[in-house]
Amino acid sequence: MSEHRERDDALAPSVEEAARRLARPVPASPSLVPNVMAAIDRRGLPRRGAMRRLLQRRMLRLSPVQIGLMAASIALAGVFVGRYSRWGIERHESWAAGQSALALTATAGITPGPLTIAVEVHPRGVRFVLSAPEVRNVSLVGDFNGWRADATPLVRDPTTGLWTVDLPISAGRYSYAFVVDGRWMADPQSPRAPEDDFGRPNSVLVVNREASRT
């Protein structure tokens, strides 16, 4: 340890000398600036981003044919968007007529009380109802919302104490659970999910688009 310190002390003057030399300004060649500028010119300007290029003034210099094409395309896009949106709504209405949910339970008789759950199909999808007047927060987690506890909160009706949420769920099989005041709980009135893979049980909801009866 002491040997290292002695060697460091011995080198100190040479280090100081090197530092003095490096601190001196190095005279630049008179041709340095012109050479650098010439090199930049040869390399050219960097490419601009797509959005910036889109906004360039030359973008607006279009021929009448191009303007016509663009207008027609925008109009077509508008028609497509409108039809697709309507189809999205109509799809639910059409399959609602023949669908059933396996987790279907009667909500007509549900009354405020300790933790009663109902799931019912209605024309726009599936309605989840929870009677839990004493709790502060209820949300739904499942395959349909990425299992995020903040994605699908239920809304409380202050007069009845019923928590509800409607989801436009398409036909299929879904695992789900409720989060009640931070506690995950399965729906006791629905089939259990067979795969209790992560330590907290889930329920299963099956929404069918029934085939015509034969």
Binding site: V81, Y84, S85, R91, F144, S170
Partner: peptide, 16 residues
């Protein structure tokens, strides 16, 4: 377009 965004949300409501 908000219309397409809505349609995409509907189409993807089936799950992750």
């Amino acid at each position: 377009s908000p219309g397409l965004a809505r349609a995409q949300a509907t189409a993807s409501s089936g799950g992750a």
